[in-house]
Design a protein around this nucleic acid. Structure first.
Lengths: 346, 346
DNA sequence: TTGAAAGCGCTAACAC
DNA sequence: GTGTTAGCGCTTTCAA
């Protein structure tokens, strides 16, 4: 009595065979109107749910999934992704998955193209892609799709009909979170947005954050803050920043739109200036150390680990459980200080 | 070739039958030394993983789980739990689960006892319990265990050998997070910890938070803050707080250890005093509205929704996948401001 | 257009 | 002790 209805039950109730019910459930056609009607009638009033477990038993195929992401050794922002992939592997061991990672050089478009080419040759069932290079990523997606390889993305948004699922953050809102934080902690005065990254590929990321940040302040009437933007590149950034600090003595807060906050913090530390509040991104060891020291006030966690993990779990939902997956999942924008950081680093 | 090894393969390799392999895998005995040896030899070098999906196919038993928690209508802190339970129901529909909720009155020990008694009579397979009343909860756990009903807990910790799993937060650390926040935003001066709750059952909760909060400041050398504690009960709390504010003009920050921050905020608002920073707990609508208004600066999310959801998902892991479950899971202590709140409310 | 039947991997009852 | 077998719910092939 405490059992769920099975396809067999439905077939009996409708006076047809399991096969016919199956055809109706999967809309495979070749069913007479009469059979269709009677099955639909039964389905409507019974609360039948197909058993996804049994559905999959047949398919003892191993699904191969390739994760394509920047080499964490080139940019440690990506380091946590390795853990996320490991966790997914462990968690989903029960389902026939074969997950492997492929790294490209985040500074080198050619390597992105090359890695995607070799992954294409492997002909996996799905690719989970960090589409850092917009145009090239669109090309890659197209080729994958031609080969019937499912492509999902994470971290960077890509406008494409072919992408089934994206996991990442709302960068505009992320800028607003940073602005609210600065508003909470920084004295009245001047605020600097620092874009510290030479890579053009990050431009969109940084711009969106800036927009959100400025949007917050522009909505505040008679705001006591003046917001300026400063672009820094690896070359000469130290002297440039030092000059900027001298030129702007009223500076009370800095928002760094990339994960390079630690490099700014190092310079601020040298100046012995305790009055400048710092907000940055990502839980890199170096950032955490300045967070504990007090130079950086807050970090915003973009949660790369969770991004891949979720991306992979959606693929499991799709392949194993045949679930519909949301086109876009926006992760929470975690505010991190020295006291709650450990929870987000795992 | 792209297939996982099955029990059949193992049997063939070991020169025995599936049944014998199964007996070895489940240590059900009645296997000759010879068979055992040859099977073990094969198992050791092959990377066989039993297919958990198929394993469960047989068991089309419906596992019944009762969630026992305070009535959300008495205390809206528990409101999100309903969503968590709904989400779990939806997510785990594929596995035969029957999840039902039972509410007790959080102010009434007798109702806690009564609800547990009736749940005991239902003889479910497992109970997920919010053990608000310590002593009575221990009694209940004992009775459940006698009837071979698995008990897991959430939100409140209970020291008991019989509890297999707890999901909640580290309250001491949570107090430290609040302290760091106050330290970031409040001017030098006096800080008040307000315990606003008449229920004794919350005493431990509130004390732990206070300890963590004070612990943070005591570690700071020459701290410019003085910390006082104020206990408020529903009766007279308005005049009491107003008096307190008058007596302590240097007050720059308040840490409310319960979810009642909105009641404090309302009074602060009336005084038109913008210099007091407020930190509280939990994303109740009323709290959120003061967060958006700016009266409350930060809320700490205790994530009751995630607590039940995870508690239930661990039961699925246990019953359906036979996984070992961690005795204790401490959730991240989320810092919430007006800009990232929506993500945590779902 | 339909039903019967085999089989996915695993378990457990049942012969031998 | 051990192998055989039926069957879990669903899919798919095949014959009718």
């Amino acid at each position: 009595m405490d059992k769920k209805l099975t396809i067999k039950d439905i077939a009996q109730l409708a006076g047809v065979s399991k096969g016919t019910v199956d055809r109706v459930l999967h809309k495979r056609g070749k069913v007479s109107q009469k059979a269709l009607d009677s099955i639909n009638a039964v389905l409507e009033q019974a609360d039948y749910e197909p058993n996804l477990i049994a559905r999959n038993l047949k398919n003892n195929k191993i699904y191969s999934i390739c994760v394509v992401l920047p080499n964490p050794e080139s940019d440690s922002y990506w380091q946590p992704c390795i853990k996320g992939i490991e966790q997914a592997k462990k968690e989903f061991k029960a389902f026939n998955l074969s997950i492997s990672s492929y790294y490209f050089d985040p500074e080198d478009t050619e390597s992105f193209i090359a890695v995607n080419k070799s992954v294409l040759n492997l002909a996996p069932d799905a690719v989970l892609l960090a589409p850092l290079f917009y145009k090239e990523a669109l090309d890659a997606v197209e080729k994958y799709t031609e080969q019937d390889i499912l492509v999902n993305t994470f971290n960077n948004q890509l406008e494409s009909e072919e992408i089934r699922n994206f996991v990442g953050q709302d960068l505009h809102q992320s800028g607003r979170v940073a602005a609210k934080l600065i508003h909470s902690i920084a004295e009245k005065g001047q605020i600097a947005i620092i874009h510290f990254d030479e890579k053009i590929k990050n431009a969109v990321h940084m711009q969106e954050k800036e927009k959100g940040f400025r949007n917050y302040f522009s909505q505040k009437e008679n705001s006591d803050y003046e917001v300026t933007t400063l672009k820094l590149k690896r070359k000469n950034y130290e002297t440039k920043l030092e000059d900027f600090l001298k030129e702007n003595p009223k500076l009370t807060g800095i928002f760094i739109t990339t994960s390079k906050a630690h490099q700014i913090a190092e310079i601020i530390d040298k100046t012995k200036n305790n009055t400048i509040s710092l907000i940055g991104y990502d839980l890199l060891d170096k950032n955490i150390s300045f967070l504990n020291k007090g130079t950086i006030d807050f970090l915003i966690n973009q949660n790369p680990k969770q991004q891949v993990y979720l991306g992979l779990s959606f693929l499991v939902d799709h392949f194993i459980f045949g679930k519909e997956i949301n086109p876009s999942t926006l992760l929470p924008i975690d505010i991190v200080n020295s006291e709650n950081a450990s929870y987000y680093m795992e």
